[in-house]
């Protein structure tokens, strides 16, 4: 067994208790499925002195649907999310992305909250203690330089959660509980472009739920079509080299709505810019190629995986093109 630090475990059954237990132990962490956090603890990247387990909090375990929105509890598992029929109907890309995370056993206990709050990843960081020590560590943890961009002081570790880009398509909001009470903010505001500090959560804040309004196309009341696809080394289990979520509506052969969001190519998941330029266009080959090129230039992958950055940029563009073509 690797080094497991001494840790005190708390298992609260309400959000308020979870927040106050965390508040009393500032070096603690929230633990959901543990499929990211426990790996990092075992590798010595994280060394919390206490854990606040959130999976026994009923409020965080439910998916609820009303006429105009769906609320997804932060501790809902990826299997539950990918298998939920209301989510699949209104937010197809979200259900697909949840079903593409890791392998089937991980999705049994990995949660959507843990997926959105996933640490950023880099080939120089997600390694054992001896590997990192032999490499003199790196800027993100314990080291002096970044091995990806040695001249600078910025970390480019990539946010690699699959579900975030799919939720960004629908302007999802996250409900956060912390020492000062509850607040809501757009999911996009949960992230910042810094691989060392990519979450805007304040100390002790807990992601309680995700609220997503049902979107309809601008011309009918049908749910807007959406899809998610990722490129990965092994089709069965790996993190995305690039992940692309597309939502699109077409009327009379012309695009009326287009949104594309990316993951795996930078320290934060983000909505691609300039997609409104395609409104009114016919989905011909030229249009699809322009979509591809516009995504490729925004997928600024760095050398944070064993796969070269230029491949990840190209594959991001190609996935966007393929998904857009499939919705047409």
């Amino acid at each position: 067994m690797e080094f497991m630090p001494q840790m005190q475990m708390h298992q609260p059954t309400s959000v308020e208790d979870a927040v106050s237990l965390h508040g009393a132990a500032p070096d603690g962490r929230y633990l959901a499925g543990g499929s990211d956090l426990l790996v990092n603890i075992r590798r010595g990247i994280e060394q919390p002195d206490s854990l606040v387990y959130v999976n026994n909090i009923p409020e965080m375990r439910a998916i609820t649907e009303t006429s105009d929105q769906i609320t997804i509890g932060g501790a809902v598992t990826l299997r539950e999310l990918s298998g939920n029929s209301a989510v699949a109907e209104h937010f197809a890309a979200v259900a697909q992305a949840a079903g593409e995370v890791a392998g089937p056993s991980h999705r049994e206990y990995g949660t959507v909250g843990g997926n959105l709050c996933l640490d950023t990843r880099c080939v120089f960081y997600n390694q054992s203690e001896w590997w990192r020590a032999a490499n003199n560590y790196c800027l993100k943890y314990r080291g002096e330089i970044c091995h990806v961009a040695p001249g600078g002081k910025k970390c480019f570790a990539a946010f690699s959660g699959d579900v975030a880009p799919a939720l960004l398509l629908f302007d999802a909001e996250v409900e956060i509980a912390g020492p000062d009470g509850r607040r809501r903010m757009p999911l996009a505001d949960l992230y910042r472009n810094d691989g060392m500090d990519h979450l805007t959560l304040r100390p002790g804040e807990l992601l309680v739920a995700i609220h997503v309004a049902k979107l309809t196309t601008s011309i009918s009341s049908a749910p807007i079509a959406s899809a998610y696809a990722k490129s990965r080394i092994r089709g069965s289990i790996d993190f995305p080299l690039a992940g692309v979520a597309v939502a699109m509506a077409v009327a009379g052969g012309k695009i009326t709505d287009l949104r594309i969001a990316l993951t795996g190519v930078s320290p934060l998941p983000f909505l691609a810019k300039g997609m409104d330029d395609f409104i009114g266009r016919e989905g011909d080959e030229t249009c699809l190629e322009e979509i591809r090129d516009k995504i490729r230039t925004q997928a600024k992958a760095m050398k944070t995986t064993t796969t070269p950055p230029h491949y990840r940029r190209r594959v991001a563009g190609a996935l966007a093109q393929k998904l857009a073509a499939s919705i047409f």
Binding site: M1, E2, M9, Q11, L31, G33, G34, S35, L38, V39, R42, R43, L51, Y53, N55, A102, G103, P104, S105, H106, E108, Y109, S128, I237
Partner: peptide
């Protein structure tokens, strides 16, 4: 135990009939 966490599946057990990696599960949970 075949890896340092979550990669291999050798540690899979059933918890309430569902598969789970026992190497990424704290016993107290």
């Amino acid at each position: 135990v075949g890896c340092d966490g979550g990669e291999c599946g050798a540690c899979t057990v059933l918890i309430n009939d569902r598969p789970r990696h026992s190497c990424l599960t704290l016993a107290v949970t």
